[in-house]
Design a protein around this nucleic acid. Structure first.
Lengths: 246, 246
DNA sequence: CGTAACTTTGAAAGAGATCAACATTCGTGG
DNA sequence: CCACGAATGTTGATCTCTTTCAAAGTTACG
């Protein structure tokens, strides 16, 4: 099964990587970061780029998982549906994030773009071939997968045990941290998603999300510059609330 | 970083594996299944076995993640706590399941045994050394990690969007499937956990769990042989309910 | 067999959902 | 550039599912 090809072991796993994967800049959650230039060149050969309009479909739950992809620009939502249409958003993905690893042959959730989004797509079959030859890619994917699992578990805590207010505060802080990770400013939190998306991520209704924003504003904890830009006035207090300190 | 030692590539990745990892029989979710006997021997050298009484602590959230482990007998719960003590159970683990991979240096959740439980523990440092030399182990761990992530995402849907009745039904079916995976019978579903554990897994209170069991019984969908053995009377209807068909 | 822990059931209360109306934003085309 | 209509967001009133509070059964075990 595993090939016995000589491994090209390269220490430089970070550092800026030029042309090959130009649109895949070396973010933390970008799996390209595990590869040296020679390996990237291999991947670049099988990579295709795509731009989706807002609301565009990346793939549907149950479809053959033929591609994995990196978001290189914009924002994407991942979600699952129940039989009667109830929706749960599993998470949002931004520039630098990786999408599409699947346990079986099919995607286990759907993905749609929130804004206009740019993607690098890799045929799964081709990626598997590269993985055979560069085992450190599996290590990198494992690391990404564990990070994603850890985030999902944090969200289980949120959905199972937090109040509406705690959920919204946790969400704002999570987004703020994501902005910092991507090299943006922590503070005016930008919401590229609708209230409906926020509600379906937090297990609430749009009305409760809206009311909770208003309540936080009245308490002086946040300020809504406009619908999509939130200023966190008292971050310490908000962090405290998010961690469930009565 | 990665050693350039010659890899011993062995096709036989399944099949029964004798002594080395005797208590780790080759279940689907057992990472040992990725290894050939020679590799298993290496792991066996650094492995220690442990038996925990009911309610025993495997590790606490925030503690150094010095060990990964396989459950070889019994049942274990994984959970996170909020500042004021609210608890969310992330999942239950049974014989054959793997526990303890962590994104950072510390565990991101706590683990306690439900019943008396037997474990094989591997020092993480030693395991990392074995991973360096046998990259297919990373592939195996990646596969396990993706399975776990997929299960967590299904649970997000449950916690965010399902009713109490749908949650409990989904839980029973999940347990039933787990029993089948471990080679046990599908039908009398065995509940090694308390109502309190079930409630904290499903994002409910013990009273709601109890009332919902009673309601399902009254509807003739289940029968409680005793508190811990549930007979699924109308499995098709239950599956339908779990998938959220109005 | 008695006591503590767990489970079930009942009654009251509450957080968030639903139903409804109004406000605001945004895209489109006159 | 502004007007209009649709989509999105906010606020209010009411309802309901689940929680909370309370107490009675049941089980496990020393």
């Amino acid at each position: 099964m595993a090939s016995a090809e000589p491994l090209r072991v390269v220490a430089q796993r970070l550092g800026s990587l030029p042309p090959p994967c130009a649109h895949c800049d070396a973010r933390e959650r970008n799996f390209c970061a595990a590869l040296d230039p020679a390996e990237l060149a291999e991947l670049a050969k099988v990579m295709t780029e795509a731009t989706l309009p807002p609301g565009g479909v990346l793939f549907h739950e149950g479809a053959p998982a033929d591609y994995v992809m990196n978001v290189t620009d914009g924002a994407v939502k991942l979600f699952k549906l129940l039989g009667d249409g109830r929706r749960q958003i599993l998470g949002f993905r931004f520039a630098g994030d990786f999408i599409g690893l699947s346990a079986g042959a099919d995607y286990s959730y759907s993905a749609e773009s929130l804004t206009e989004a740019k993607l690098c797509r890799f045929p799964r079959r081709k990626l598997d071939a590269v993985r055979e030859r560069f085992p450190q890619l599996d290590r990198r994917l494992l690391s990404l997968s564990i990070d994603e699992l850890t985030a999902a578990q944090e969200q289980l805590l949120l959905l199972g045990r937090k109040t509406a207010e705690e959920r919204l505060v946790s969400f704002l802080i999570l987004l703020s941290q994501g902005q910092v990770r991507r090299g943006q400013t922590a503070d005016p939190v930008v919401l590229p998603m609708t209230r409906s998306d926020i509600a379906d991520y937090l297990g609430l209704t749009i009305e409760t999300v809206s009311r909770t924003f208003s309540a936080l504003k009245k308490k002086g904890l946040i300020e809504l510059q406009d619908t999509t830009h939130i200023h966190l006035v008292d971050r310490d207090r908000l962090e405290e609330m998010a961690s469930g300190l009565a």
